[in-house]
Design a protein around this nucleic acid. Sequence first.
DNA 1: AAGTCGGGGGC
DNA 2: GCCCCAGACTT
Length: 341
Amino acid sequence: MPHSTLLNSAALAAALEAWFAECGKDYPWRRTRDPYAILVSEVMLQQTQISTVLDRGYYQRWLERFPDFQSLAEASEEVVLQAWEGLGYYRRARNLQKLAKAVVEKHGGVLPADPALILELPGIGPYTAGALSSFAFGLPEPIVDGNVSRVLARLFHDATPIDSREGIATQWSRARELVAAASDPAAFNSALMELGQTICRTGQPDCESCPVRRFCQAVDPASLPVKTNRTVLTDVTERVFFRSTIEGVMLQQETGNRRTGLWKLPALPEGGELPPVLLKSKYGITRYRVTLWVHAAPEVVPEVEGMRLIRYEDLFQTPMPSPYRRALDAVMKGQGEFVLE
DNA sequence: AAGTCGGGGGC
DNA sequence: GCCCCAGACTT
């Protein structure tokens, strides 16, 4: 039976909306109903914290460069990736442009106000479809993200792993039921996320300040939610080389599944003597612990697929993942051996 | 259902 | 260090 037997959805929604009306934060994407502007924020915020997107100007810069679906659809991929540089998960940027092209071609440049059609677009999953439907169109569609799953697990005192099939289904079902009882779906969904972000936090929930405390069934909120997922870190060694001329630097463009279209220092071919080390740097990325060695170029500069000389004046607008950007900057700035850790 | 995508910030 | 973050997609 519906989970509403456990609490009064309408009363909960009203309490949360009242709290949000008073305490809700002011974000640029909350000041607009432009579906495109909201879409850009949602994609940038996938697995990325708000402060990362806002403090470094990504959002505003993007909207200035690509103010609507049409301009994004017409931009070159290189410019798109360059605007995304530093945000990571570059597939999001490529999908966003693919989406813009689809909206222009299939929907005349206007995002359809239909959750099912939105969900079909590239790069749009259940969360982003719900976010767009509620924030841009005011539809009572649910959203479940990291914040919401934590809030719901505690609210309903549910120790089902939130990353299990059953846990995911339960969360969406509860979120759907709650938003249906809301008077303002957009405000309610925003409130649910913001509650998780500011009060129902991962580490120490601030239950004293919680506007829906009287609805909460959690016995020990800090022990929820439960997850099954455990990540094992893998060590990776990567060797690249630095080859510069009077005109520029040799770089290699990625073509595989990762970082497609972005540029990096060229891979040092396997086998043979290792040229002198110019720089050693370490960085973590998803489940990898990478040690990046930047070597001098071999005496006979190897042929590397996708390698090209990039002129110095073009370097700053060449899309490049952050770890390579940092390593390249360090190598170009200094002489001798450096360590970036 | 599990891996992948291969970032970045906070504590 | 480790965990989390306005997840989506592939196998």
